[in-house]
Design a protein around this nucleic acid. Structure first.
Length: 473
RNA sequence: GGCUGGAGAGCUCGGCUGGUUCGUAGCACCGCAUUCAUAACGCGGCGGUCGCGGGUUCGAUCCCCGCUCCAGCUACCA
């Protein structure tokens, strides 16, 4: 049996999950269900990046002990999955010393043995107020920290660096040949352009002191802890047993798909594969990069503007699957998309109530009136849906399904089965309608599992009309 | 500033290597018709100088040049 291992991004846990997380989780879940139905064994992993200094700072600001802060916030993210109807197999936390730390340290050791880790003194502009280094571009025109309006100090520190430069050519090959497949194309082009402009080594550790004691210790050096990327990205492997459970790790690694947001593209398509190459481990196969969701007009969502769409409120108010349908059908893959409650209502009414819901009610009633019993038919994904989901074209694929629904509505108007008196003719017509509906429902399973199930059940055996799938708002 | 992509109906978009007045496209809107259906479905209609200015061509939304505007990327904050 073939396997399909999917990961979502490993979020920072100093906030609450928002619309962008919901989109990512829906994409992951839809993909996972698709592969499950195809008969593959699937695994979905997420986790929490808990060793970042910002977590410590946020905990302090909230006057909560760090571990308690992490426990609470990680739980919030973990809970988000079930609230959004996504079944998660593994939620791997970065503060997990039993499962995570040994794996990260193993990865470090492998890279080190390959000669890719070296010590170098790093000089940077450090803002005491922010407790972090700033790049020139982050500062004001006068060279001040924009938050504290103070001049940052020039600080020198010894850190470990990773020889990223060594992997430039190899990465270029792997990405342009799609051996490491970056989706969509515009993000792949962006990554390639970044790589061909030249790669510099990057710092992978911090002094323990500056990290305030948080983080995975560097093997053989008590004074340093690993920096976020080395630590957080490793969760994709430690969560399935890298360094602690060789058998499980062997079974699932490499990941078939990492799903991430565009803000962390580089870390996943450049740093991460380079680290794996260095450790001589297999590379993930595909990286799906989604964009961001904005309010109408491309505005940022913000409480003060009152344009925030909260995923949990939406699912509670309008139902999980309508909301899932909305995001997956309306947000493009390669560009930022806009979302609003008004737009949701339009889509709900047009596609779900008037479209799918009405059609199901329509055909069910016709079938009931004519005492139709459904034939049992073995179904599989229609070719366009199969192709679309293999390429992660969620919106386009739903569009294909809805095309078939629209043409069925037209067909029924044309046939006017309610006027036909010949019972054989009516039965043939209805069976063909039912066939189309069942096919659509089958294709819909990865996107709207409960809805699909309801439809498939309604159209098996004796068919009865039932309460509306999507009541009018 | 550099690199990449984009600019078209009120909105979202398709238009393969240039060919009649872009589109049987969806949503919204208006009208007609109608009940098998969730005031749903169907049919019809409204609606675009295809960003601006040049050029190549018998002919350009599509090719070339310039301009304006928008978005993304331009590395050790995640």
């Amino acid at each position: 049996m073939s396997k399909f291992y999917i990961t979502t991004a490993i979020p920072y846990v100093n906030g609450k999950p928002h619309l962008g997380h919901a989109l990512e989780y829906f994409q992951a879940d839809t993909t996972r269900r698709f592969h499950s139905i195809l008969g593959e064994e699937t695994l979905l992993l997420s986790g929490a990046d808990e060793n970042a200094l910002k977590n410590v700072q946020a905990a302090k600001a909230a006057h909560i002990p760090v571990q308690e802060f992490l426990d609470t916030n990680s739980q919030t993210f973990k809970d988000a999955f079930s609230q959004l109807g996504v079944s998660l197999d593994i939620f791997q936390r970065g503060s997990d010393r039993k499962k995570h730390w040994p794996g990260v340290q193993k990865l470090w050791t492998l890279c080190n043995e390959n000669g890719d880790i070296y010590k170098k003194s790093y000089e940077g502009l450090y803002c005491v107020g922010c407790e972090s280094f700033k790049t020139e571009s982050e500062l004001t025109a006068d060279g001040l920290c924009p938050d504290h309006l103070k001049k940052p100090e020039l600080v020198k520190e010894e850190n470990y660096f990773f020889k990223l430069s060594r992997y430039q050519k190899k990465l270029e090959e792997l990405i342009s040949s799609d051996t490491l497949h970056i989706i969509p194309d515009n993000k792949k082009a962006e990554t390639l352009s970044f790589i061909t402009h030249g790669l510099e080594d990057f710092s992978i550790s911090r002094s323990k002191q500056r990290a305030e004691g948080v983080g995975v210790p560097v093997p053989g050096d008590d004074t340093q802890v690993m920096y976020v990327w080395f630590d957080a990205l490793s969760i994709y492997m430690t969560g399935i047993g890298f360094g602690t459970d060789e058998k499980t790790w062997q079974k699932w690694w490499p990941a078939d798909l990492h799903i991430i947001g565009k803000d962390i593209n580089r870390f996943h398509t450049v740093y991460w594969p380079a680290m794996l190459l260095s450790a001589k481990l297999p590379l993930p196969k595909q990286i799906l990069i989604h964009s961001f969701i904005t309010a109408p007009g491309g505005q940022k969502m913000s409480k003060s503007l009152g344009n925030v769409v909260d995923p949990f409120e939406m699912t509670e108010k309008f139902g999980l699957e309508p909301f899932r349908y909305y995001l997956l059908s309306q947000i493009p893959l390669s560009d930022d998309g806009e979302a609003s409650v008004d737009r949701f209502k339009e889509v709900y009414s047009a596609d779900l109530a008037n479209g799918l819901g009405n059609l199901v009610a329509r055909v069910a009633k016709l079938a009931e009136n004519n005492n139709i019993t459904a034939n049992t038919v073995e179904l599989s994904f229609s070719p366009l849906v199969y192709k679309g989901l293999n390429e992660y074209k969620f919106a386009e694929t739903l569009g294909e399904i809805w095309d078939s629904l629209r043409s069925l509505d037209k067909q029924i108007n044309q046939d006017e089965p309610w006027k036909v008196s010949d019972q054989t003719v009516i039965k043939d017509m209805l069976h063909s309608y039912i066939q189309i509906i069942c096919q659509a429902a089958f294709d819909l399973q990865p996107f709207m599992p409960d809805t699909a199930k309801k439809i498939l059940e309604q159209f098996s055996g004796e068919i009865r009309s039932q309460s509306p799938l999507f009541p009018r708002l």
